[in-house]
């Protein structure tokens, strides 16, 4: 099939961006979305034009690098999948596809579809860890953890830090990411010890990065490739108020 791509092109952080049309020819249904872009980029490069810059790495939905807003929806709208797991069989011949980067003040553009998500790293640096040094830790089985707690913590820990929640939110809020990170640790006894300090400093860091606030619209949950639940935000709110 042949497709028209309306792609956001932006030379660098400080230059203005605009949509540019590209044509994707002979797209096969088995291609992934990113492989379709690879093919377009090959053609561009052969013509000596600048390929479309986009982030991707593992291409199996776990590293969280890929980050495209496809036809207005981060990761393209297939439930529980990242952009790299979206395949072209979900599109039809002649379709026009709009491709944009994550848009948020806290995710400044780098080039084309690539943005800088280091704000997430800084939020983690502010307290998203258990303060243990290497060595001297008790035996792993010294402290039993109820299976339900461990499973719930794992649900939160499944977050791949892609930032789709921010991209989808009308307020560009990072609440789902921060909540998943806070709750992953707060639900486990190892992380409870410093839970208060953690939630306070991570929320402060989140606000300082310039993310918006939560309006509980549920868009974040809808686009999350790991289908992380809004309930974690509620839990974080409670922990924050208690702290």
């Amino acid at each position: 099939m042949n497709l028209t791509l309306k792609v956001w092109r932006q030379k660098s952080a400080n230059s203005p961006g605009r949509f540019q049309d590209h044509t994707a020819r002979n797209v096969m249904p088995d291609m992934s979305f990113l492989e379709m872009l690879d093919v377009v980029n090959e053609e561009l490069a052969e013509r000596g034009e600048e390929p479309i810059a986009f982030d991707s790495d593992c291409r199996e939905g776990i590293c969280g690098a890929c980050s495209l807003v496809i036809n207005g929806i981060p990761h393209g709208g297939n439930a529980g999948t990242a952009t790299c797991q979206l395949h072209m069989r979900h599109f039809h011949d002649g379709q026009t596809i709009t491709i944009e980067p994550w848009r948020a003040r806290a995710f400044p553009p780098v080039k084309d579809l690539v943005v800088d998500r280091s704000a997430f790293d800084r939020i983690i640096q502010s307290g998203g860890f258990v303060s243990v040094n290497t060595g001297g830790t008790p035996d792993a089985n010294a402290l039993p953890i109820p299976k339900v707690d461990q499973e719930l913590a794992m649900d939160a820990a499944a977050c791949i830090g892609c930032g789709a929640c921010v991209a989808a939110c009308k307020n560009a809020s990072a609440m789902l990411f921060v909540a998943a990170k806070v709750q992953h640790l707060a639900l486990l006894p190892q992380g409870k010890v410093e839970a208060n300090r953690r939630v306070l400093s991570m929320v402060e860091a989140m606000d300082a990065e310039g993310f918006g606030a939560c309006s509980v619209t549920g868009s974040c949950e809808a686009v999350c490739p790991k289908q992380i639940s809004l309930d974690f935000i509620s839990r974080m709110n409670r922990d924050y108020l208690k702290a």
Binding site: V130, T137, P138, P146, K147, Q150, L188, Q190
Partner: peptide
């Protein structure tokens, strides 16, 4: 030692109902 270290960091390894 690795398993001890990781559990202390909050790695949610799979567990039995008894918590181990």
């Amino acid at each position: 030692n690795i398993i001890d270290q990781c559990v202390a960091q909050g790695v949610p390894f799979a567990r039995e109902y008894g918590g181990l």
